[in-house]
Design a protein around this nucleic acid. Sequence first.
DNA 1: ATAAACTTTCAATAATTATTGAAAGTTTAA
DNA 2: TTAAACTTTCAATAATTATTGAAAGTTTAT
Lengths: 167, 167
Amino acid sequence: MNYDEAKMKFVSTWGSLGTLWGINKAMAQIQALLFISTKPLSMEDIMEDLQISRGNTSMNLRQLMDWGIVTKEIIPGERKEYFTTEKDVQELARVIAKERSRREIQPVIKVLKEVSSITDDGTEKTKELIKQTKALHDLTQTADDMINKMVTQKQNWITKSVLKLIK
Amino acid sequence: MNYDEAKMKFVSTWGSLGTLWGINKAMAQIQALLFISTKPLSMEDIMEDLQISRGNTSMNLRQLMDWGIVTKEIIPGERKEYFTTEKDVQELARVIAKERSRREIQPVIKVLKEVSSITDDGTEKTKELIKQTKALHDLTQTADDMINKMVTQKQNWITKSVLKLIK
DNA sequence: ATAAACTTTCAATAATTATTGAAAGTTTAA
DNA sequence: TTAAACTTTCAATAATTATTGAAAGTTTAT
């Protein structure tokens, strides 16, 4: 496998993985491209490399900036805007986990809390609803806490000691 | 909020969360419905409750059975098939994590390994590709290991001690 | 063997989501 | 101030994904 094949394979695989961390294909591919690039890329560069339209590129770059994993780079003397992504995987993971928690997990936790707090009218079905949503609430809350705590650490000694602990 | 409102809210919220764990809306809603039901439900029950077609119900129930979180229940003297879901949230989390790892994370790890193993031709861009995909490989592998180890434990003392450790 | 009760399959269709491209908007240089 | 260089917006369209419903398939009771 040569460089170009490897690059293509990485970009498209990372792109299809996008759904796993809750973003679309183009967005993930743009991030992947920037992630392995040795220098900032312009919109033209990205459009050409991924064969996507200007509008698509613009919108997805914006979203990546909203997520806080891509930043605009001003290159002196250049009219175009250039873009780079966070290159440290630990930091990348931290940002992604934080955003997903905020955007998706928190709202669910809120609903689970509401639902599990309805007044118990004594019927079996109400008891079951309360019991099960409460269990789900606790699990979701704990998982979310753990993920956040873990990735909040800048160093990864945590990861290592946790792994050791649970092996 | 009364029982029916709470039930609806739970089912639809859990349904929209489906994407987060990689399944579709109907599938997640069916699982949610079974999760708070006090008794096994038939296909008719589910169709009526969620207002979805027979075909849709049949296909999604099958998928849930493939995932191993829903099982057929034979009720003596009844012609219809009845269904139940795993009621223990810890076990549910375990099964979901295992399946997602197998279906989505493992293939990505494989590609990352392949890409990061291309021969270094000495150019800067190749070095960067190798370096970054290797970092991603390590991170993904570690995260996957952690999740699997954690949810493999039947008890949740692990969760508690990890939380204590990283607080 | 047959018919009733039930489930599965799958081509057609609907709903959702992503993408395009051209017009409108913005910035910079002269 | 103007025009060139560039970016953003968004209605239209394409691509993808989910859902339907009816025909085909299966099982069970008689």
